[in-house]
Simulated scan of single mutants.
Amino acid sequence: MKNCVFNVSVDTKKWFKAAGVRAVKTMAQTAIGVIGSSALISTVDWKVVLSASVVAGVVSVLTSIAGIPEVESEG
């Protein structure tokens, strides 16, 4: 795990920034998907949109622990 956040050669600030950007993008994509699918059926349930987006963001951050290609290890 070359770009893992627990690797001492990885810059933690860069990792958190990259993981945050990925999580926000994932949350936005999830929100768009949920809004789009629920708009076709009836009205948008904003609690479902919010909860699905938050879960997607958490999963994104947890997945990023294994490594983020944008963050180069120094060494």
Rank of each mutant, 00 (worst) to 15 (best):
V71Y: 00
E70Y: 01
K47H: 06
E72C: 07
L40W: 14
M27I: 07
I65A: 06
V10G: 02
V34A: 04
M27A: 13
N7G: 06
I68E: 00
E72L: 08
S60T: 03
C4S: 14
A39F: 12
F16S: 10
K2M: 15
V48Q: 10
A66N: 09
N7C: 08
N7K: 09
F6W: 14
V48Y: 12
I41A: 15
A66C: 11
S60I: 02
M1W: 15
T43V: 15
M27V: 07
R22I: 09
T26L: 10
V59D: 08
F16Q: 13
V61N: 01
T12Q: 15
G57P: 02
S37R: 10
A23Y: 01
V10P: 04
G67N: 03
G57Y: 05
V49T: 03
I32L: 15
S38N: 11
W15L: 03
W15Q: 02
N3L: 04
K17Q: 13
V49W: 02
A28I: 14
L62R: 06
A52T: 07
V24H: 10
S60G: 04
V55H: 10
W46N: 13
M27P: 05
A19V: 02
S73N: 13
I35C: 10
G33K: 01
S9A: 14
R22H: 10
G75H: 13
K25I: 11
S42G: 14
G20C: 04
V61L: 03
R22G: 11
V44N: 05
L40D: 15
M1T: 14
E70M: 01
G20H: 07
T12R: 14
R22L: 13
Q29N: 14
V44T: 10
V58P: 01
V5H: 06
K14V: 13
T43Q: 13
E74Y: 08
A52R: 07
V49I: 08
S37Y: 11
E72V: 08
G36L: 04
V44E: 04
K17N: 11
V58D: 02
W15K: 04
A18T: 03
S38P: 07
C4F: 07
A28S: 12
A28L: 14
N7P: 06
V71F: 00
V55T: 13
A18K: 06
S38M: 14
G57K: 03
V54N: 00
A23K: 00
V61S: 01
E70S: 01
